[in-house]
Design a protein around this nucleic acid. Structure first.
Lengths: 346, 346
DNA sequence: TTGTACGCGTTATCAA
DNA sequence: TTGATAACGCGTACAA
C-alpha cells in the first residue's frame, strides 16, 4: 500500500463495488508487477510470503475476480463443459442436465448449456459456437447422425461424449440398448397374454431402420420382435400426431386382447387420457405400456407399466468419461442396463 | 489468392476442417491486412467490392468462424444473456428457460444458463462469473433477497431483470401477485363452503413475512386472509417435509369441512397420492387445491383446482424488458395476472 | 524473487 | 480504400 499514489488510493476507496478491478490495477496499488500479482493469486511457489500476503489482501479487499473471457482466451481452456440437448421440458433432459451440472460443480467445472430443439442446423451452429468458447469438452445429445456429422465432430478438436442418440458406432457414447429394451417390452406384454400390440411414437412415417436415434431404435425393436413372433400379426403403427385415430385402430369389439406400446411415457399418458375420457378401462379393455419411467408416473393411476433406466447414472458416466477424455485418457462407449417396471396397466 | 505463399497454399489445402482458422491467416492468404478482413466479414462500407469478395470467398472456403471469446473480450459485449434459475426439474423453470431461449434465438442472442439450486452463495458466484463473461444482460430468479444483495446486483453494471422472487421493490421485476393470488384461492375455497383450510408448503418454519420470495408471499396471503376471516379459525401449517402428518392434522371424523391448500401443485400431487392410498375421496372427504397449473395436471384425475398464470408471458416479458434495458431504455416492473382454474378437487 | 514483454483472436482507432 | 497498431484482461516464458 505504501507505493500507492493518491489516485490509486482514491481508486481503492471509490472503485470497489463499482467496477471490476483488474490485475494491472492491483499491481499498481501494491507497487509490484502483474507477474507477481499473478503468482500470488495462483499461489505459485516463486514469491515472497510478505508480498504475496499484501497482494492477496488487496485483492480480497477489492473483491478481485479473474475475467473469465480473458483468462480462457489466454489459457486456451475455460474449465467449462458444453452441454447440448434438445429440450428441457422433457424429463430425461432436465434430469440429465441437473446431474451433469452437480457433478461439474463438484469438480470446479462450469457448464454451458444449450438447446438445439432437435434442429440439426442449430445443433451444428451451437457446436461451432462452443468451440469458439474454448470449452474443454462437450456432452451431446445429438439430433444429427451419420458419417458426415461424425466427421464434423472429429473436426472439432474437443473431447465429446454423446448420450442417448448415437452418431456413429465408433464415437464415445453413453446410453442404453433401446432396441433390446423394446424387444423386452414386447416379450413382457406377450407373457401377459396379449395377442396384438400397437405401437405409438413420433414421426413413424420418417422412420429409418439404419438410424441410431433412440426413437428409431425403439421402433426397430418393436418391429423386429413382431416380425419374429408370428402369432402377434404384423406391426401396427400410429403416429403421435394422429393420436385421435387410436380408438379406431383399436376396434375393441372384435379384437384379440390388445396392448398399446408407446415409444415414451409421455405418449402413454396422452393415450391414457383419451382412453379414460372414453370410459375404456385399463388393463381390462386394453393394455398400455410406456418407456422412460418419468418422475410424474408416481402420481398417475393406474400405475403405468414402463421401461426404466438410470438417468442419473447416464449423466454421471457421461461426465466422468468426458473428464477422462479431457485428461487424455482413452475411454470406450458403455451401455447401461434397463429394466421393466411392472405397474397395473399391462 | 495470388499473394498466397506456398506455405499458405498448403495451409488452405490441409488445414480446412482440421483447426479453426483465424482472421490473421485469412489476411495472409488474401494478401491484405486484418483490418480489411474484418471490414469484409462485417460488411462495413469502407472496402473495395472485389477485395471484399475475395476475402469472403476464402473465409467461406475455410469455414471461418469468429472466435467468440476473443470477439467478446475486444468488444466488451458478447451477444449473450445470462439466465440464472434454481432448478430445471421444476416445470416453471424449464418452461421459462425454453421461452427465453426461443426469444433470444430469434434476436440472435446466445443464452448462458446456470443453475443455483437455490443456493445463495452459488448464486452470487455465478452472477460474478456471468459478469466476467461479458454477458449483455441477466435474467435472474433470485434465491437471495434484501438490501445487501440488491446493492451487490447494482454493483454488477449489467442490466438485470428479476423473475418470480423479488430482490427489492425498486428492482426491475416480472412476476405475479402471489400474495393476492393465494388470497383469491382462500376466497374461492370459502365460496365452496369449506370452513377449515390447512396450508402445506416448504420451509414453513423459516417463513419470513417481510420476505419477497414467492413462497413466503404465498404463505403470507394465506395467513392474512385467514386472520381476516374469523369463521375459518386460525391458520394451520404443515411443512412439506412432514407430509405424513397430513392425515393426523386432518382429523377427518370431527372436523368441519376441510380443504388443503398447497403452495404448489407438486405438493398437492404428493398429498393427492397419500390421500388416494388411504382411500380418502376428493373432494367428498376433503378438498385439495394447488398452485402453478403445471403441465402434467392434464394427466391427473381428479382434475386439480389450481392457480394459473402465464409462464410464457413472464419469460417473453422478462426477455423483452431485458433487451430494452440493454438498449438503454428505462423499464418498470410488471405484475402479470393470475386466475383460478376450477377443477374437480375443491 | 521479481519484472518485462509477448501471445490469445478480435475490434477499433488512427494515419496513410 | 487500406494498413499498422493499440486495446480487451490475463497467462507465461524469459530475462534480470
Amino acid at each position: 500500500l505504501v507505493h500507492a499514489t493518491l489516485a490509486q488510493a482514491l481508486l481503492l476507496e471509490t472503485r470497489s463495488y463499482v467496477l471490476s478491478i483488474k490485475i494491472k490495477e492491483i499491481a499498481g496499488l501494491c507497487g509490484v508487477s502483474v507477474g507477481t500479482v499473478d503468482r500470488a493469486l495462483h499461489n505459485r511457489p516463486e514469491i515472497n510470503a510478505e508480498t504475496k500476503e499484501k497482494v492477496l489482501s488487496i485483492a480480497r479487499k477489492l473483491k478481485y475476480r479473474p475475467h473469465h473471457l480473458a483468462s480462457s482466451l489466454a489459457k486456451g481452456s475455460s474449465m467449462t463443459i458444453g452441454v447440448l440437448v434438445y429440450d428441457l421440458r422433457n424429463y430425461f433432459f432436465s434430469q440429465l442436465v441437473e446431474v451433469i451440472e452437480a457433478k461439474a460443480m463438484e469438480q470446479n467445472y462450469y457448464v454451458n448449456l444449450m438447446l438445439s430443439h432437435g434442429d440439426r442446423k442449430q445443433e451444428i451452429d451451437y457446436l461451432d459456437h462452443m468451440r469458439s468458447l474454448n470449452v474443454d469438452g462437450i456432452i451431446l445429445v445429438a439430433a444429427n447422425t451419420g458419417a458426415e456429422f461424425d466427421k464434423h465432430l472429429n473436426s472439432i478438436k474437443t473431447p465429446i461424449v454423446t448420450v442417448g442418440n448415437r452418431v456413429s458406432k465408433r464415437r464415445v457414447w453413453v446410453g442404453l440398448n433401446d432396441r433390446k429394451a423394446m424387444r423386452d417390452a414386447v416379450l413382457f406384454i406377450c407373457s401377459k397374454g396379449y395377442r396384438r400390440i400397437i405401437y405409438v411414437g413420433p414421426q413413424i412415417a420418417a422412420y429409418d431402420p439404419k438410424s441410431l436415434l433412440t426413437t428409431d431404435q425403439r421402433l426397430l425393436g418393436y418391429r423386429e420382435s413382431l416380425m419374429e413372433n408370428s402369432k402377434l400379426g404384423s406391426p401396427r403403427l400410429v403416429d403421435r400426431s394422429e393420436m385421435d385415430r387410436i380408438l379406431d385402430v383399436l376396434c375393441l369389439s372384435d379384437s384379440p386382447r390388445t396392448c398399446i406400446l408407446c415409444s415414451a411415457d409421455i405418449e402413454a399418458l396422452e393415450i391414457l387420457k383419451v382412453l379414460k375420457e372414453n370410459g375404456i378401462d385399463i388393463p381390462r379393455h386394453v393394455g398400455l405400456m410406456g418407456f422412460d419411467n418419468i418422475d410424474v408416473l408416481r402420481y398417475i393411476t393406474p400405475r403405468l407399466t414402463t421401461v426404466a433406466y438410470p438417468i442419473s447414472g447416464i449423466g454421471e458416466t457421461a461426465f466422468k468419461y468426458l473428464i477422462e477424455q479431457i485428461k487424455g485418457n482413452p475411454v470406450q462407449s458403455i451401455t447401461l442396463g434397463h429394466r421393466i417396471i411392472e405397474g397395473e396397466s399391462v
